[in-house]
Design a protein around this nucleic acid. Structure first.
Lengths: 223, 223
DNA sequence: AGCGGGTGGAATGTTAACATCCGAACATCG
DNA sequence: CGATGTTCGGATGTTAACATTCCACCCGCT
């Protein structure tokens, strides 16, 4: 079952990455809602590390778009305006189109299997927060299957913001979310496995459209 | 002549940004060729600052893809393999396609004028290095005209690598470069100003193609 | 009351010293 | 003679103290 043949990278990470992970989780857990200030000394004290790694982590999170830093004014959790959501969606579309094309053209069967597993995992989700997490994980798998390092890095630059956006989505309308989303992703996987570029592109575009519609119109759209 | 009406942001930058600029320039000047190690203490001593800002600057440059850091092993200037160039080109294509579409659809006349000025500036270039610099500046102007903050940030993630790539290009074949490139950019501007989406997309694609062809085939292509 | 300037506090930016880690060269043992 | 263990040097990772900057509050003036 495990992926033998590809041993774990076993690379030692610095404290900064660890701190970044913790803060990221805290933001997604709702501990730090959008707009909250993230003071370096507080985080340093809470995580029992010095301010150096904390600073580094905050800069990393800024590059991920999760927080916003201003000179001598501190960092706050990003709040996404409707314009931000539009920007995010268009950029994500450009990246995902390329990813989908590459997956269809030259993804290995193991990569596709990993994508399918990520989709399957969504079926067993019980609450919306974990479903959002698994949703992001699914798209991570898609970008990983594209086998394009720089593309995956570019996705990292919007990944957390999409997560944030999906979080506001479940705040607006969670009706049928748990049932609808897994089915939608099943279709995406099917199109990918069928190696149907046009269909996959359309389905992914529709998938994104559904997400923004909920936030923009405030409803789940036409049933 | 100057752009009055839009006052300079006048925001104070930290030392890290200053250091990053210096190192970037040094890399593009050839002071640090690809593969060179960038030691924190050396840079700190040379720039008369402490290691803190230098570390921060190096992390920034890593996000720009200009250098590569490894844990407890130091940072080195990026060396682009042929696969890297291919990755770079495809990602740049995805970003530039979106940018071109947006410029055609909703760029102001002032934005287009700025793009044209950037193209005009290339005519007066005398040596290849400054031409490369102006080439990058031209594409900066295009992304700026797209009025899409996140897209511009994504471009920043490939910008320096494209610069690096263009530098290797002039190393391979500089024949007719000084005369050809400005003309090519003039066509790009014309297509943009004509608001012809299809033509602009094609010309930008061809423009990218020319660049990679030089490096991949080792010649300037069919005369 | 409204406004301008000064002041205090708190947070970030910066620095220098300490701890940790990796790699290469040398010595050692089979 | 080859492989393994060790040691040494240099670099990065981390820490705590110092300097700078901003914001909010308050005071005095008009």
């Amino acid at each position: 079952m495990g992926d033998f043949g590809t041993v774990s990278p076993a690379r030692r990470r610095g404290l900064a990455d660890e701190v970044a992970d913790r803060v990221r989780e805290a933001v997604f857990d709702g501990t730090y809602p959008p707009g909250s200030p993230l003071r370096e000394v507080e985080l340093a004290a809470a995580l029992q590390v010095s301010r150096g790694p904390v600073r580094e982590a905050l800069r990393l999170l800024e590059h991920e778009g999760l927080v916003h830093c201003e000179w001598h004014r501190g960092t706050t959790v990003t709040t996404l305006s409707p314009e931000d959501v539009a920007e995010l969606d268009s950029l994500r579309g450009a990246l995902e189109d390329l990813a989908v094309r590459r997956v269809v053209d030259l993804a290995s069967d193991e990569d596709l299997a990993a994508v399918r597993r990520a989709a399957d995992r969504m079926e067993r989700a019980t609450d919306e927060h974990t479903l959002v997490r698994l949703d992001i994980a699914f798209h991570d798998a898609v970008f990983a299957a594209a086998r394009h390092r720089r593309l995956a890095e570019a996705w990292e630059g919007v990944r957390c913001q999409v997560h944030l956006f999906l979080l506001t989505r479940i705040g607006r309308s969670s009706e049928g979310y748990l049932a609808r989303i897994p089915a939608e992703h099943r279709e995406l996987v099917a199109a990918l496995e069928a190696r149907d570029t046009g269909l996959a592109l359309d389905l992914f575009a529709a998938h994104r459209r559904h997400a923004v519609d909920v936030v923009v119109t405030g409803t789940a759209g036409p049933a």
